[in-house]
């Protein structure tokens, strides 16, 4: 059969790389073929998720933050400082976390989706027109965030003026000065050229952009055992591949940025500098507990326990 797989990024970005690997594996180990649909070609992020729910698409990659409109608990990934800040621990965390591997799948299943895997896409960094060393430097800075109450709350707590803006307008708005900052993983800052219109990159370690691959549940349940194994194995191979691929991707992207724009400063905040940012996480947690659905508390607690567990390893 022909299986269709849509994602939120371009073919050569992280989600696209994962999808390409998945396609390669499936096609090598079965008679099925996989068609890939990069961002925008079948509609916006929400649209491709709905198409997967109704069975037009078999596979979809949507970041849990966006899925939050459907599964409120998934917004937990927007709570700052909940994920390990160091890359190696992070991969283990995704493989071992009870919240991710046991608590989320039933929530997705209720929406007709089989959660196949979640994986990190890279540390979220701020790019700004003025240097940032602490919350005081964000005071009155109009900072573009995605339309999500938790991100808005986060940046408000950081002291900035969170400004929602459609993605297509961000580049122009940074150029003309409507906004003075935005956040994204390094590869995305590089590929979308955000560095051309900002001057400083700040690594506060507050988050790692997480994404999830899902299948239409009815389709997945209806697969023969053999086919299901092909899918599961392809996901596993692609997961290992993407963790490997990202090892160094952040540094590589930052190097490319430096090369294209030598004047760009890249600052990694120290533990002490991060502390005031970390202190604001409480207010965001409160907001999450309010809007995060029935299992918000349980998921938050479990994620914290999971974090504890991998950190002590």
């Amino acid at each position: 059969d022909t299986w269709r797989y849509a994602f939120e990024e371009a073919l050569e970005e992280v989600q696209g790389k994962f999808a390409q690997k998945f396609k390669e594996e499936v096609e090598a180990n079965s008679d099925h073929s996989v068609q890939l649909f990069p961002f925008g070609t079948l509609g916006e992020s929400d649209s491709i998720l709905e198409q997967t729910q109704s069975g037009i698409l078999q596979f979809v990659d949507q970041s849990p933050g966006f899925t939050g409109a459907l599964i409120p608990e998934a917004q937990v990934f927007f709570v700052p400082y909940l994920l390990p800040q160091d890359e190696e621990t992070l991969a283990t965390f995704f493989e071992e976390s009870k919240a991710i591997n046991e608590m989320f799948p039933p929530l997705y299943a209720e929406q007709g989706l089989e959660l196949l895997t979640m994986f990190p896409e890279g540390e979220v960094m701020m790019t700004t027109t003025e240097p940032v060393e602490g919350p005081a430097d964000l005071n009155e800075v109009k900072f573009r965030v995605m339309t999500n109450p938790l991100l808005v709350e986060s940046y408000q707590a950081f002291g900035a003026t969170p400004t929602p803006l459609p993605w297509g307008e961000v580049y122009g708005a940074l150029q003309t000065g409507i906004i003075q900052g935005q956040e994204n993983p390094a590869f995305f800052i590089e590929s979308t050229k955000m560095y051309e219109v900002t001057d400083h990159i700040t690594r506060a370690g507050h988050n790692n952009f997480t994404t999830a691959v899902m299948a239409n549940k009815e389709f997945y349940d209806g697969l023969s055992d053999e086919d299901r194994t092909v899918v599961d194995n392809a996901i596993d191979v692609a997961f290992d591949y993407i963790i490997d691929y990202q090892d160094g991707l952040t540094e590589e992207s930052l190097e490319k940025i430096k090369e294209a724009k030598p004047s760009m400063t890249i600052t990694t905040l120290t533990e002490e500098q991060r502390q005031p940012f970390m202190d604001t996480a409480d207010s965001v947690e409160q907001e999450f507990l309010e809007i995060g659905g029935d299992q918000a508390q349980a998921i938050l607690d479990q994620l914290k326990a999971d974090l504890e567990a991998v950190s002590s390893q």
Binding site: E50, Q111, P149
Partner: peptide, 17 residues
């Protein structure tokens, strides 16, 4: 009806789509 049954919310307004 499908949207209503899925319970999708508008992220900022937090009202059903």
């Amino acid at each position: 009806l499908a949207q209503a049954s899925r319970g999708r919310l508008l992220p900022a307004l937090q009202v059903p789509v």
